[in-house]
């Protein structure tokens, strides 16, 4: 029972992680598929840890199996203890301990260096964003000294590609955790604490994030998207988000808005440009410009929206949005209106 491996075994050992990585590591939410400097630094650190630990593991288990194989031909236990052998063994064990200490020290230094990279302020002028965690959605705010330029949206964060972003993290209720694996490590949102993190996406793309601290019934459905765009597109998006919608011209849309304003919607949602300005639930001013509904649970299309409005508890049981009993015509008008809020 020897651990002497054949060529093909050795090849498999080397290639398997590489192959697995190709098919396994990619993903919209994968930490092994980094898209920004912070996550790339962590990923590099991970591969160092991975390879060194793999070698250590193979050596330890290998030695165990070797020891098992070798020991069967040893002297019987009645033979006296051989002092020379004991001394040799002491040397070997001590060498292993020293090697362990050295490896751990290397890991420590690597860890501190990577930590410095991910925590330190990157060069360039950062974009400031405030994210407040609620049960079970993300409030996103782009502050601005000019209050007419403040953008408030929900569950979707647009950032310019290639520019550092500073995200301030607050919580309105329980502890949540902001995590976009492809861009940065996670950071908790703790009530009455102000945490923050740095983030940057090198290239335009869509990156998915998810709450990573158990926060109640719908922790599993509390996701968000980070959409990195070229600077021009980002500015265009931002300018559009600042606008409040004009009163709708189309009669169907007007009826839809009337349904919104006279039902329970106004008790929780804001529609800038109307009298609806409650802040318990996501800001819906530019609802139709978002890709998902209900914090990444449903895609933003008419059928899903109808399902969400009529029976939100069936989609996300326990979430704070009550089901709504609207008559069919009102419902369709409302759907049309919400679909027009680009």
């Amino acid at each position: 029972m020897s651990f002497a491996t054949t060529k093909s075994t050795k090849l498999a050992v080397v290639l398997t992680p590489a192959i697995l990585c190709q098919c396994g590591c990619r993903g919209i939410q994968s930490a092994l598929d980094p898209a920004g400097p912070q996550s790339r630094s962590i990923s590099g650190h991970w591969w160092l840890l991975f390879w060194v630990c793999t070698v250590v593991f193979v050596l330890v288990v290998g030695f165990m199996l070797y020891g098992l194989w070798r020991s069967k031909i040893q002297t019987p236990n009645d033979a006296p203890v051989d002092p020379a052998k004991e001394t040799r063994t002491t040397w070997y064990v001590s060498a292993c301990v020293v090697a362990t200490v050295v490896i751990l020290f290397v890991f420590l230094v690597a860890s501190l260096s990577t930590a410095k990279t991910i925590f330190s302020k990157p060069g360039g002028k950062p974009l400031e964003i405030e994210v407040t965690g609620h049960q079970w959605w993300w409030e996103v705010r782009y502050p601005d000294p000019d209050s007419s330029k403040i953008v408030v949206t929900a569950n979707e964060i647009h950032i310019p590609a290639g520019q550092p972003v500073h995200i301030l993290l607050k919580s309105a209720d329980v502890i949540h955790s902001f995590w976009v694996p492809k861009l940065q490590g996670k950071m908790d949102l703790i009530p009455m604490h102000s945490n923050s993190l740095w983030m940057q996406a090198d290239f335009p793309g869509v990156y998915r994030g998810q709450c990573a601290e158990f926060c109640g019934h719908q922790h599993a459905h509390m996701s968000f998207l980070v959409i990195a765009e070229p600077l021009a597109d980002f500015n265009q998006w931002r300018d559009q988000q600042i606008q409040s919608g004009p009163p709708p011209a189309d009669p169907v849309l007007r009826k839809g808005q009337h349904v919104f304003l006279s039902s329970s919607c106004v008790l929780c949602h804001t529609l800038r440009g109307t009298t609806a300005s409650a802040t318990l639930a996501p800001d819906l001013t530019h609802f139709a410009s978002r890709h998902t509904i209900a914090a990444g649970t449903l895609s933003n299309d008419r059928a899903s929206l109808e399902r969400w409005i009529v029976n939100s508890q069936g989609v996300k049981p326990g979430n704070k949005m009550p089901p709504n009993d609207l008559n069919p015509e009102d419902l369709q008008n409302l759907l049309s209106y919400l679909g027009s809020l680009k």
């Binding site: 329970s264 049981p317 326990g318 089901p323 009993d325």
Partner: peptide, 13 residues
């Protein structure tokens, strides 16, 4: 009991 209202009727005004 946790009652996650799943029916629209329960939301009657």
């Amino acid at each position: 009991q946790r009652d996650f209202r799943a029916t629209a009727e329960a939301s009657q005004l």
